[in-house]
Amino acid sequence: MSDPTMSGPTMSNSSTPLPPLSDAAVAELLAAGIAAFAIPAEGAWRAEAFSYLRTIADAAQFVLAHDLGDEAEPAAVFRP
């Protein structure tokens, strides 16, 4: 049986577009981030941060929908 993760013309993760992130998933992501960094975020802050993260998530889906293949290098910052 073939491995479904190895299929597709480029075998890249992005050959399968990300499904849209639901608001509930964005809220979970935000809650995890706030907890991971121990941010004492108040309710109003969370609401504002949610709207920004919603926008970021949509931007990420847009960016990752562009299939660059497996061999595309990220832009380097570090130079040895």
Binding site: L30, R46, Y52, A60
Partner: peptide, 15 residues
Amino acid sequence: IAGLAIPAAWVAGAQ
């Protein structure tokens, strides 16, 4: 605060 919740894979994809 929103930026703290960004998955690393999104950043790598952007780079």
